[in-house]
């Protein structure tokens, strides 16, 4: 239904801009806007911020079966506010969208859920932590131990996540700038999960283990008008070091940002232009050419790696479509990670 198509524009303001929606200007009427120097309060800030327009709990994991087979999973809960408050009942202005996926080397299974707040069908509470939509959930005592579950018509999974490192704050202590014009979000991650559990697939159940990465981000300011999409990388090197890097593609030039994370969780923000992204090969999926092989260079840290999609066809054919899947890293550093690309 189109109401939902429109909701998607709200959840993904970027695509709204790409299609010429000017209504959601950066001056968000009545919504709070991210401020530099914001002091995070936990566990409260693990919960929702209804006065901000958009927010997400975004978990990806690189997993391996007993036979060494690669798998990837995604679990995402988006919150989008029509108005900057929450209320009980059907007329709550808070809308929730869940995306879940399982990626195998040959297949990509995904599912989508929609709900509104106010009735208990979907939501997030900070303490004890619980994020849910329908039968999907991500819950635990704080973010350190999480139980994660989702299901679709062809798959389901039940995983447990245990954090082995601290939270990482991107940008300036969690204030992450997204454009030269100053649009920004509050952004932190928990990139140190070890994961185990079971994937249920059409081919049967698979016991898996691996690494997970949770992103938490909220904002009311969408991207700049000229920006048409992004390429976002979360890479975990075998050395224990990690890299979060993204490129926002704009007519006035790309805007890049990155966070270098040491194995102990110490992090450094790398400014616009520090990382170079070079598409090496594209794959045609859903009638468009998507770069599924990249050269990522970070000369400051001596990083010069090739990033290769394990499943080039990992297309999220949801109401707002994008590419999201696990990757293998080779070159100066080896490892694995996740790649998300929008606006193709």
């Amino acid at each position: 239904m189109n109401v939902r198509a429109l909701l998607v524009f709200l959840v993904f303001p970027l695509s709204a801009f790409a299609q010429g929606y000017a209504g959601l200007g950066t001056s968000a009427e009545g919504f709070s806007t991210p401020k530099p120097g914001y002091e995070f309060q936990f566990p409260q800030d693990h919960g929702p911020h209804p006065d901000y327009r958009i927010e997400w709990w975004y978990l990806t994991a690189n997993l391996q079966g007993a036979d060494g087979q690669d798998y990837g999973i995604q679990w995402t809960l988006f919150r989008s506010a029509l108005k900057p408050f929450e209320s009980d009942g059907w007329q709550s202005p808070q809308l929730w969208m869940g995306h879940a996926a399982v990626t195998t080397p040959d297949n990509h299974y995904f599912s989508e859920r929609l709900s509104r707040g106010g009735i208990g069908q979907a939501g997030v509470q900070a303490d004890p932590f619980d994020a849910w939509i329908d039968d999907w959930h991500m819950r635990g005592d704080g973010l350190d131990h999480l139980a994660l579950a989702a299901s679709g018509t062809e798959f389901s999974y039940d995983l447990t996540l245990t954090a082995s490192g601290p939270l990482v704050f991107h940008g300036d202590r969690g204030y992450s700038v997204k454009s030269a014009d100053g649009q920004a979000s509050h952004y932190y991650s928990q990139p140190f999960y070890t994961v185990e559990g079971v994937l249920r697939l059409p081919t049967g159940d698979v016991a898996v283990t691996g690494q997970g990465w949770l992103d938490r981000e909220w904002s009311s300011q969408p991207l700049s008008e000229d920006q048409s999409g992004w390429d976002w990388f979360s890479l975990s090197f075998d050395s224990g070091q990690k890299l979060m890097a993204f490129r926002l593609r704009g007519e006035r030039g790309d805007f890049t940002s990155a966070t270098w994370i040491e194995a102990d969780g110490k992090s450094a923000t790398l400014d616009d232009g520090s990382v170079q992204f070079t598409p090496l090969a594209t794959h045609n999926v859903a009638d468009r050419d998507v770069p599924t092989r990249w050269r990522v260079s970070l000369p400051d840290k001596g990083v010069e790696v090739d990033v290769n999609a394990i499943t080039p066809s990992a297309w999220m054919g949801t109401r707002f479509e994008y590419w999201e899947g696990p990757v293998r890293v080779s070159g100066s550093h080896t490892g694995q990670g996740y790649l998300e690309m929008t606006g193709y």
Partner: peptide
């Protein structure tokens, strides 16, 4: 088209 906010709230 009406805004989703108008229809839902």
């Amino acid at each position: 088209p009406p805004e989703p906010a108008d229809i839902l709230t």
